[in-house]
Design a protein around this nucleic acid. Structure first.
Length: 726
DNA sequence: GGCGACGATA
């Protein structure tokens, strides 16, 4: 409960006071804050921010509102908002006192911002006794071919009156039919085409994602002088959004803006979503505040949009802002908003707050659905909170909360990530026993992941057989898990068989799978290595070529290797680049090409594959090898020792402490790194010792290191350097 | 007898 209170109380607080103009000092703190700060990580909440944020000063007099003689574009309007003042609570006189305000609709004599027009469904329709016939007719139109259309249209059971025509148009699903019918209506010329006909036709076109056609209709409306209303604009905008034509969506909103039409709540949230999907957080917040200032009361959908946006940005303060705003407006989050907020909390890295928000939701009487639980399971999994995840699962079963495939599979992959083998098996059996949710290829993948990373080759292969028996397709990830497992068990013939089965069944190989094959190559010899390279040859031939180049007899020059390596990396998915480099380094070391291994580590570093490999503070220099393979970590250690030796010899300043972080091996792939590192330290006789307090750390003091370098120089130096030293 | 002209979540 304490955490729940935490969530909603602290208001926004900003640190960036520059740009803070005098003109907006009267606005509530959160308002100006949001408009002024740079997009990324704008806010940090400090503990005392709640105390510092006093009650907002009163709004300015209406005359303080800036005016423009011409109608500027929306972009122009949104930008200067940060230095422009707007009233928080406008009223009618306020608006009428500035007739040129962009947001006043010139076609309407009495603009009412506060009561936005929303269509009243009941009012626009009355009961139509011919509905059955007309629906049947619409069905016939839907099902006929386009060439039969003109014949079928003649069989219309009743006269195409305005209401009848609307009813039919409304029931035409395929956009082609809607467009044909719409054009037919126009050719009949029995009544004038009103806005609603265009809107209904556009709905169908949007369903078919026909933005081109929608835009043509809209331009036709403009040309014929038919009024475009909020429904028209929001249909156009959401269609553009669905077609990923975000610039078009903005363009049409700007157009609407220029006509002076007031957006209603639907248009607001549609446009906010467009800006949010474009990553334009500043614009979203400007528009949000502008809307609020002109009397718009944001609803749950608008807040879901905002929450999603802040979640995507991992912006925790933004999430708090949403909660605060809802509270201010006296709006209780609904299920969707809670789900969005929960997911946002997860993305912002706040599992504890997500958990308390979830409890708050349940306490308020809202029953979680599949999406809620999926979001939460993901969060607990990522936080490695096995206990919370399993307790949640238990609670789901007890309460009979809804489950679906995604939730089941999310639970399974959570078990895979946390190494919960027994629980995963139980869950998998549950799925097999259930009627509705038999394990699918995702479920099998999660199980293959568990058995694969746990080294249970036989169980993994049993699953593989079971899949083909049950007709469940193997996907790339399952294939990768299986191959990794077979590789470690040195069952290379099985590996090749799995690879061939998968590819001939249509599995498209990806760079992760190639990285997995490459890692098998790195620890295989002779014939085995050739077999795996044979698989890799089919998936990524240039990589095999590069492996041959690395161990080739001909002495390749560095620049050539560099160019080839760069070419391969740029044709490789980002997430597979470091694994490639790690494996290639391992391959070099296993083939005694240590020089080349160092070159590859160097190249990997300059291509940004190992960010944070070295960190330096005043007191401590650290080598961070957690994301490196064994060979790469050894290479990095050698490199570091060489550099440190030079620094000692040059008598430059050194910190008191040196450390190497291998990680404690809790992650399934990093196991064994610590041990391998320890033995390499021993081989080099480097003065690092495993830390007793911090698992996964190797420590050396400055004194140890200096004396090691000096003794090494003394023992290994030739007589000439010994002479020069004298 | 009961008619979806506009917006949100994995």
């Amino acid at each position: 409960m304490a955490a729940a209170a935490n969530l909603s109380l602290a208001p926004y607080h900003h640190h960036h006071h520059h740009h803070h103009s005098d003109t907006n000092h009267h606005l509530p703190l959160h308002f100006t804050t949001l408009l002024l700060l740079p997009t990324k990580k704008r806010f940090t909440i400090s503990c005392n921010s709640a105390k510092r944020a006093a009650a907002p000063p009163p709004p300015p007099p209406p005359s303080a509102v800036a005016q423009d003689p011409k109608t500027p574009s929306l972009a122009e309007q949104l930008k200067p908002l940060s230095t422009t003042t707007l009233s928080d609570q406008p009223n009618e006189t306020h608006l009428l006192s500035k007739p040129k305000s962009t947001w006043v609709n010139p076609t309407k004599p009495k603009p009412s911002v506060l009561s936005l027009q929303r269509h009243q469904r009941s009012a626009s329709y009355s009961y139509n006794p011919q509905i059955k016939d007309l629906r049947q007719f619409a069905k016939k139109l839907n099902e006929c071919t386009e060439s039969d259309f003109s014949a079928v249209i003649q069989t219309i059971p009743h006269s195409p009156s305005r209401e009848n025509a609307l009813l039919v148009l409304n029931n035409l699903r395929p956009w082609q039919k809607a467009l044909l019918f719409f054009n037919w209506l126009k050719s009949q010329d029995v009544f004038p085409m009103e806005t609603i006909f265009y809107n209904v036709a556009m709905k169908s076109l949007r369903f078919g994602r026909q933005f081109q056609h929608i835009e043509e209709l809209a331009l036709e409306m403009v040309e014929k002088g038919i009024v475009l209303d909020n429904i028209t604009y929001s249909t156009i905008i959401t269609c553009a959004k669905r077609c990923n034509l975000f610039d078009k969506a903005v363009e049409w909103f700007e157009r609407m803006y220029k006509t002076g039409l007031m957006p209603d709540e639907v248009t607001y949230s549609a446009v906010l979503d467009v800006y949010a999907k474009l990553g334009k957080v500043e614009e979203v917040m400007s528009l949000y505040e502008r809307g609020r200032a002109s009397g718009w009361k944001p609803d749950s959908i608008a807040f879901a949009v905002l929450a999603k946006m802040f979640g995507e940005a991992g912006d925790y303060d933004g999430i708090r802002y949403v909660l605060q705003e809802m509270k201010t407006l006296g709006l209780q989050p609904n299920l969707v908003v809670y789900n969005t907020l929960l997911e946002a909390m997860g993305k912002a890295g706040k599992p504890g707050l997500a958990r308390s928000l979830f409890e708050e939701m349940v306490d308020s009487g809202i029953v979680p659905n599949e999406k809620t639980l999926t979001a939460l399971v993901k969060i607990y999994g990522r936080a490695r909170w096995a206990r919370d995840a399993l307790e949640l699962w238990e609670r789901m079963r007890l309460k009979g909360w809804p489950v679906d495939f995604i939730l089941y599979n999310t639970l399974l992959s959570m078990c895979a990530d946390l190494g919960l083998v027994d629980e995963a098996e139980r869950l998998f059996d549950d799925m097999k026993a259930s009627e509705k949710h038999k394990p699918d290829s995702w479920s099998y993948t999660a199980m293959l992941n568990i058995y694969g990373s746990g080294g249970s080759v036989d169980k993994a292969m049993d699953l593989f057989k079971e899949m083909s028996e049950k007709g469940v397709g193997l996907n790339v990830m399952g294939c990768t898990c299986l191959i990794q497992c077979l590789g470690r068990a040195k069952k290379i013939d099985d590996l090749v068989r799995v690879f061939q089965t998968a590819t001939s069944a249509g599995v498209k190989t990806d760079d992760r799978l190639c990285g997995c094959l490459l890692s098998v190559v790195s620890y295989c010899k002779g014939e085995d290595s050739d077999k795996v390279l044979g698989c890799l040859e089919l998936a990524k031939p240039e990589l095999v070529e590069f492996v041959k180049l690395l161990s080739g007899e001909e002495s390749n020059n560095f620049d050539f290797v560099k160019e080839e390596f760069k070419r391969i990396l740029s044709n490789t998915a980002v997430e597979a680049r470091r694994p490639f480099c790690n494996c290639l380094i391992d391959i070099c070391r296993n083939r005694n090409c240590h020089e080349r291994a160092h070159e590859l580590l160097y190249l990997g570093t300059i291509y940004g594959l190992y960010p944070g490999l070295h960190t330096k503070t005043e007191e401590e220099w650290r080598l961070n090898v957690r994301s490196l393979s064994v060979g790469a970590a050894q290479t990095a250690l050698e490199e570091w020792m060489g550099t440190l030796a030079k620094i000692v010899q040059r008598k430059e300043n050194l910190p008191a402490l040196f450390s190497a972080n291998t990680g404690a091996g809790t992650h399934k792939f990093s196991q064994g790194l610590g041990g391998a590192f320890a033995s390499h330290v021993e081989k080099l006789a480097a003065p690092f010792r495993e830390s007793e307090e911090k698992a996964g750390f190797f420590i050396a003091t400055r004194e140890d290191l200096v004396s090691w370098v000096q003794s090494k120089a003394a023992s290994s130096s030739s007589s000439s350097s010994a002479v020069s030293a004298v």
